[in-house]
């Protein structure tokens, strides 16, 4: 099968991809070819939300994007959501940390992306908006109580 070569704009940088199979998902290319393992490979059918990224500013399951078709799009992964300084966290990430909304951590990057997407659009969301926003993110450890609490903390700190 013919190899495909293209370049993706990920977290503000052009990243060449060479020798890929044309059917590879964006999730596969991020993790296996571009050394960006933040987006997690859970269900690979859009059900779990663990691979959520922003494509041209739109919250998207990276597993459902054909990588070779994302040429020309601006892709932001969880690695690129925060300040450039190594080790610094966003308000949302800090809130998850402080509220104990992390157990095994598998779903966390997807939840962080979903909550950033929500708060960028609605800085003061209703409780229903919050539940709706994370309805596509499955957590198999803690349940969602602390995640919802973390979002409350993030909203409060963002408003300051």
């Amino acid at each position: 099968m013919t190899d495909t070569t293209y370049s993706l704009n990920v977290n503000g940088a052009d990243r060449p991809v060479a020798g890929a199979w044309l059917g590879e998902s964006l999730l596969h290319v991020l993790r296996e070819r571009l050394a960006l393992p933040g987006a997690k490979a859970g269900c690979e059918q859009g059900e779990c939300g663990s691979c959520s990224v922003l494509v041209d500013g739109v919250l998207t399951c990276a597993c459902l994007v054909l990588a070779a078709s994302a040429v020309g799009a601006s892709i932001i992964t969880v690695e690129g959501i925060g300040p450039a300084e190594r080790g610094e966290m966003t308000i949302v990430q800090e809130a998850f940390n402080d509220a104990g909304a992390v157990q095994c951590g598998f779903c966390t990057p997807g939840l962080i992306m979903a909550v950033h997407d929500l708060l960028d659009r609605h800085p003061d969301p209703s409780a229903l908006d919050v539940r709706e926003a994370i309805s596509g993110n499955l957590c198999r450890c803690t349940g969602y109580g602390r995640v919802l609490a973390a979002v409350e903390v993030a909203i409060e700190r963002s408003a300051r």
Binding site: M1, L22, G23, S25, E44, Q45, G46, C63, L64, V65, L66, A68, S69
Partner: peptide
């Protein structure tokens, strides 16, 4: 479509996106 591709049920030789 990508659900089928990811699962190996479809192996496209060309794509129009």
């Amino acid at each position: 479509v990508m659900v089928g591709v990811n699962a190996g049920r479809q192996t496209p030789t060309a794509v129009v996106a």
